[in-house]
């Protein structure tokens, strides 16, 4: 059979195998997005040398880190074939509840736990509405988005909450590890952990199978409802973490915090190769997608382009990235 032949060929020709491996990378979506980002970065640095300074780059990283963190949860939801529109609300409400706890005189760990609790609650609500009630994910999370948003205005009456916080808490949003901002470190850590979870664990495999063909997965013994509940809880919880980091950075919980951020997060996942049809996508892809958008945003500022153009450019990037992907998989016979 052909397999044995292939085996011996790969064993004896290591350089060729390496070259073949590099050629195969071309087919990996993350690599393409990473290349796109490097090209955009190179173009920007042609016009302004300031782009490539450590100072600027770390600023860029910190700027997109919250979107990237949330996209890690979002991409898992999208891989199951779902969508989570409520991440912005979960993020905002978590930062608000954390701020209110500090305001009421609770300690750092209690306040953070309360914020994370908000995320878990959001996730359970979304997950149960989708699995137990049977609502479409779009509707379920649209509802919780609105409820969360409404609650924020009801609690704050439109006024930011700015409590006194201990010095140690502000490290989360403002600190550095060497030259690297703490939110970026957290982003990288979460990326590594969840990339491994998705690639190497049974749970990760079940997430892909649920999105790839829910019926077949269920008939194979995968508890698809439990998988879905889990990804919504993870998504909201990770979003609440982003909310707490955001609060730690500015030490002010804004009533409009997280407003509209779900769209940036979904965009990051889509640019990073996630298919809204489910079954396809990756954690690293989503983070790189967020990075690409972040680099473009930075370029717009550095090159003195009208900042309103930034949103339009981001929109263009989404369309180009996903179109290229669709066209490519059409050319290779639906097997990209």
């Amino acid at each position: 059979m052909s397999m044995s032949g292939q085996k011996s060929a790969t064993a004896e020709q290591t350089p060729q195998r390496l070259w073949h491996g590099l050629a195969q990378l071309r087919h990996v979506r993350e690599v393409n997005v990473l290349l796109a980002m490097l090209i955009v970065g190179a173009l920007i640095s042609l016009y302004t040398p300031y782009f490539l300074t450590t100072n600027n780059l770390m600023g860029v990283f910190r700027a997109f880190s919250l979107t990237a963190i949330m996209s890690i949860g979002m991409v898992m939801v999208i891989i199951t074939g779902g969508i989570d529109l409520s991440v912005g609300s979960a993020m905002g409400l978590a930062s608000l509840v954390t701020a209110l706890c500090f305001d009421a005189g609770f300690g750092t760990s209690t306040s953070i736990a309360a914020g994370v609790g908000v995320g878990v609650t959001f996730g359970l609500a979304n997950g149960l509405l989708i699995t137990a009630v049977g609502l479409p994910p779009f509707i379920a999370t649209l509802g919780t988005l609105s409820i969360g948003r409404g609650m924020m205005y009801m609690i704050t009456h439109g006024v930011p909450v700015t409590p006194d916080t201990p010095e140690a808490f502000s490290v989360l949003g403002q600190g550095y590890v060497g030259p690297v901002p703490v939110p970026v470190v957290i982003m990288l850590a979460l990326m590594v952990v969840f990339a491994l979870v998705m690639r190497r664990t049974r749970f990760g495999r079940h997430v892909y199978a649920t999105g790839g063909n829910e019926h077949a997965a269920r008939l194979s013994g995968v508890k698809t409802d439990r998988v879905k509940l889990a990804v919504y809880v993870l998504s909201s919880t990770i979003a609440s973490l982003a909310g707490i980091i955001g609060f730690s950075r500015y030490l002010s919980a804004e009533p409009a915090s997280g407003f509209g951020s779900e769209l940036d997060v979904i965009a990051a996942a889509a640019i990073g190769g996630a298919s809204l049809a489910g079954g396809v996508g990756s954690v690293t892809g989503a983070v790189i997608g967020a990075a690409l958008v972040g680099v473009i945003a930075n370029g717009v500022v550095l090159l003195n382009i009208n900042t309103y153009a930034q949103q339009a450019i981001t929109g263009g990037v989404i369309l180009i990235a996903v179109s290229l992907d669709v066209l490519r998989s059409k050319l290779t016979g639906g097997n990209g």
């Binding site: 892909y208 790839g212 019926h215 008939l219």
Partner: peptide, 9 residues
């Protein structure tokens, strides 16, 4: 195709 396999895997 519908029930037996996850075709993209």
């Amino acid at each position: 195709k519908e029930q037996g396999l996850v075709l993209g895997m």
